[in-house]
Design a protein around this nucleic acid. Structure first.
Length: 875
DNA sequence: CCCATCACG
DNA sequence: ACGTACGTGATGGGT
């Protein structure tokens, strides 16, 4: 039989070590994870290297130990365990259980003593023993059979203390480690030792005398010195300290070596804990296999014919798609569940079934879904108008916590406690290996999704209600999904010929710029490569380096702008960059997205993605079409109405974020400025620079505008100094002056950070939440970032709430008025419609009215609008 | 697949 | 002392 190998881990010490060695990471729900993460990486490494047959993790139990009988200040003065660490212990225990490793703790004894006792027992049975700890005290236990591994920085780096290593390092035997500590003490455990004796002196003394006791026996023969005086004066204390430092190897533990057999991890359970804590890199790297069906059985049927009685008044339905591009992809199959019966219908049957179509279009038949907007859009392509969506798990989860990583139902379901849906990647594979599995596998997967939606609907809605977020979800996000779906399906018409013509002109300009650049550089190179460009500019041409990136020289636009006076090539590069961007992203990229059938682009608005509550837009992104520079702005000439004699009508909120700030801070000055309808940047300049309105120069206004931006972003002197190209000190002075002029804003900023620290999250006007786990971090960077986020998110998020509400009201109003006008796009603070010319007059009246009254603030909202025959002309 | 860059609010 | 402006998505280069 192979020799037994026992691995003993010091749970508390390792958790502490990991906690302080690693940055304070947190998962999406705000649980800190660094201690568990460090422990896990260490554990993985040790398991792989040592392959133990028996294992135990020992923990300290409670506050008092038998050592307190000796010295009641033992471990006194120790800082309370930080809450960010305490909250990790339950997860650590869960993880250890998942690995199927025994845990043990015993009243009055420390983990050390449990480890010492078991190590001794194991030794007497001739086992190999390895002890792992972050605490060097344990090294006193080292023998020929017992090695003590102490973690160093980063947790996976380990120093192995064997008797010979200890001899080499200190010139002492393991036993003498105790004497060393008796003499030098240990501030972390509040062990006093002999004042004035440190590691060096202790080692010297022990080499000469052997032990504390031997030292004091011979102390009379020691020649007179300051040190001798101290030793004599502290004899009792030294002996007591030694006693405190001695690990007790006879602890009365009620666990035996037989109990410690280690069967290896339950990989499924370990993965589940990793999932919960978002240890993505570990999940990816590990070769853990998810066990075949630990999942509960789910009865389901593959149905060939659907009769009306099968489709209930309330039912979960899931439309499974090939991929996320729901405007172009195919349906793979559809799952239904009412909690009792679960069934699957293939696309072929689904698409030709009048019974299902009628049910889907029946408003009174309530549907529970996840990502109903995707289903709505793809069903629309089949001529089916989806109605009666009562629950959308994707949106509900997003409202509960916008950080929940979204698109896969498996992830969402797990988040709310249902773990029996497989990840899409498991079913289909990924990348080039993607493939649709056999029908029974697909059917079960899809049926499980439907079942999980059904099962979790009450759970998630309950959570929404406790958080007072049900209205936000049900009255705002859910109806908005249907509106966004219609906007996407409607699409916006693009004139490809216009784009192609622009492309040709750009091509010519780019070619001639290329020529100039190669000429000036003296060689050909890839201008698009920041690496190659850096070499040319900063090495060959010797331009001064202003900023560096992780990988080399920065060639970003702000750097190049400062270098323009140094070399004529710089301007050419800036121009080249600008035009190359236009051509690749906005000409070629956009053309690729135009649908052949209708000459339109159909973006997808991501409604459950951003941390703040904004939408985002993909394939193509229609929220970043150029406007700031004229050359780019011309791209908008290619966006046109879908009918002859229609126009594009654009309406945007003026200064919505600063108005939101005025409302939330209720700063008298800021509120007054908006009530009087003043130009806010001019007003800010007047207050910050103490001048009258007509004394405000354009530079002062520019600076004030930057300060206002800074305030909205969560001000920092550094950020403002970068933006205005001034010193940090000057920027700091601007900020001070601003906050003096707007004291209510200062109070708001202070309070919101306090509130975030207290609650762990911030909220918007309509009670949207964002969790900020890093707000209590001791890492300056993480904490500062979280603080700025605490200031910015309520502002940005409330602005998002307002425009979303406006979209809902606008949709209703258009219907009421019986107009043909269609809402096509939302770009954060503006709405873009297409409209028949004869409806313009009405729109000019109702669009500002609806938008300005979407949500009532203590300052007015202001909307500007315009229209034209292309998006460019709606300015 | 990540990084740097740059387009928008 | 720390080293940042807030929120996004698409592209080309390079590993």
């Amino acid at each position: 039989m192979a020799k037994e190998k026992l691995l003993l881990l010091d749970g508390n010490s390792l958790a502490y070590r990991a906690f302080f060695a690693l940055p304070l990471l947190a998962n999406e729900s705000g649980i800190h994870t660094n201690a568990v993460y460090g422990f896990t990486t260490m554990l993985q490494k040790i398991l792989e290297e040592e392959k133990p047959t028996k294992m135990l993790v020992a923990f300290d139990a409670g506050k008092t130990t038998f050592r307190h009988d000796t010295f009641d200040e033992y471990k006194g003065g120790r800082q309370k365990t930080p809450p960010e660490l305490s909250e990790q212990f339950p997860y650590l225990r869960k993880l250890i259980d998942a690995y199927q490793i025994k845990r043990y703790e015993k009243e009055l004894y420390e983990a050390d003593d449990i480890i010492g006792t078991l190590a001794k027992q194991a030794q007497s049975q001739h086992m190999d023993v390895i002890i792992v700890s972050g605490d060097k005290d344990l090294t006193q236990l080292a023998t020929d059979q017992v090695s003590v591994y102490i973690t160093r920085k980063g947790m996976t780096d380990i120093e192995k203390y064997t008797p010979s290593h200890i001899e080499e390092k200190y010139g002492l035997t393991p036993n003498q480690i105790i004497d060393m500590k008796g003499l030098m003490g240990d501030p972390s455990d509040n062990i006093p030792g002999v004042p004035g004796v440190g590691e060096k002196t202790a080692i010297k003394l022990l080499k000469e005398y052997g032990s504390v006791e031997a030292l004091y026996e011979q102390i009379d023969s020691m020649k007179q010195s300051k040190m001798k005086e101290k030793l004599v004066a502290n004899e009792e204390q030294a002996k007591m300290s030694k006693k405190l430092a001695t690990i007790f190897t006879e602890a009365p533990i009620d666990i035996t070596l037989e109990d410690l057999n280690y069967p290896g991890p339950n990989e499924d359970n370990v993965l589940q804990v990793w999932q919960e804590l978002s240890f993505k890199s570990l999940i990816e790297k590990s070769d853990f296999q998810v066990e075949e069906k630990v999942t509960a059985e789910l009865a389901f049927e593959i149905v060939r014919d659907v009769t009306p009685d099968m489709l209930k008044d309330v039912m979960a339905i899931h439309v499974e798609l090939e991929n996320e591009h729901y405007h172009t992809c195919q349906i793979l199959g559809v799952g239904f569940s009412d909690g009792e019966t679960n069934f699957y219908v293939s696309f072929e049957i689904f698409s030709n079934n009048e019974v299902i179509k009628n049910w889907l279009e029946d408003e009174t038949k309530k549907k529970y879904m996840s990502d109903s907007k995707a289903a709505q859009a793809i069903l629309k392509r089949l001529g089916i108008n989806l109605r009666g969506v009562e629950f959308d798990m994707l949106l509900a989860s997003y409202i509960v916590n916008p950080a929940i990583s979204g698109d896969d139902i498996a992830t969402l379901a797990r988040e709310f406690g249902y773990g029996d849906v497989q990840a899409n990647e498991t079913i289909y594979g990924k990348g080039a290996k993607w493939t649709v599995p056999a029908e029974n596998v697909l059917a079960e997967h899809v049926a499980r999704k439907a079942f999980s939606i059904w099962s979790l609907q009450p759970v998630v809605e309950e959570k929404l209600k406790t958080n007072e977020q049900f209205d936000l979800y049900y009255d705002l996000e859910l109806p908005l999904a249907a509106i966004l779906g219609r906007m996407e399906s409607e699409g916006i018409k693009v004139n490809i010929e216009t784009l192609e013509k622009m492309g040709e002109e750009l091509e010519q300009k780019i070619t001639s710029l290329e020529k100039e650049i190669y000429e000036l550089a003296g060689e050909k190179f890839n201008i698009n490569s920041p690496k190659q460009l850096g070499v040319i500019l900063f090495e060959k041409l010797g331009l001064p380096t202003i900023k560096k990136t992780k990988t080399g020289y920065s060639t970003a636009a702000d750097v190049l702008e400062r270098l323009q006076s140094e070399h004529t090539i710089v301007k050419y590069i800036l121009d080249y960059r600008q035009l190359a961007k236009l051509k690749s992203t906005y000409i070629e990229g956009l053309i690729k997205e135009v649908h052949r059938g209708d000459s339109k682009v159909h973006t997808r608005f991501q409604q459950a993605l951003t941390a703040t509550g904004r939408l985002s837009s993909t394939d193509p992104n229609l929220q970043n079409i150029p406007i700031r520079l004229e050359e780019g702005r011309k791209i908008r000439q290619a966006f046109v109405p879908s009918n002859e004699d229609w126009v594009l009508f654009a309406a945007d909120y003026s200064q919505i974020e600063l108005r939101v700030l005025a409302h939330m801070s209720n700063d008298d000055n800021l509120v007054d400025a908006f009530k009087k309808g003043m130009d806010i940047h001019t007003r800010t300049a007047m207050d910050v620079f103490h001048v009258s309105e007509d004394e405000v120069t354009s530079n002062m206004r520019r600076a004030a505008k930057a300060v206002n931006f800074g305030i909205v972003y969560g001000i920092s002197d550094y950020g403002l100094s970068q933006n205005l190209d001034i010193t940090r000190k000057e920027a700091g002075e601007f900020i001070d002056k601003y906050l003096q002029s707007f004291p209510g804003v200062k109070d708001y900023m202070d309070n919101i950070v306090q509130e975030a620290k207290l609650k762990g999250y911030v909220t918007t006007l309509l009670n949207r939440r964002r969790y900020l786990p890093d707000i209590t971090s001791r890492n300056f960077n993480l904490r500062s970032f979280a603080e700025r986020t605490a200031m910015n998110t309520p502002i940005q998020g409330s602005a998002a709430d307002i425009i979303k509400q406006a979209m809902i009201n606008m949709d209703a109003r258009l219907k009421e008025e019986g107009l043909k006008t269609k809402l096509l796009l939302q770009v954060h603070d503006e709405l873009i419609f297409e409209a028949p010319r004869d409806e313009i007059e009405i729109l000019e009246r109702i669009v500002p009215e609806v938008m300005e009254n979407a949500i009532s603030l203590n300052v007015p909202l202001k909307v500007d609008f315009s229209y034209g025959s292309t998006w460019y002309d709606a300015k």
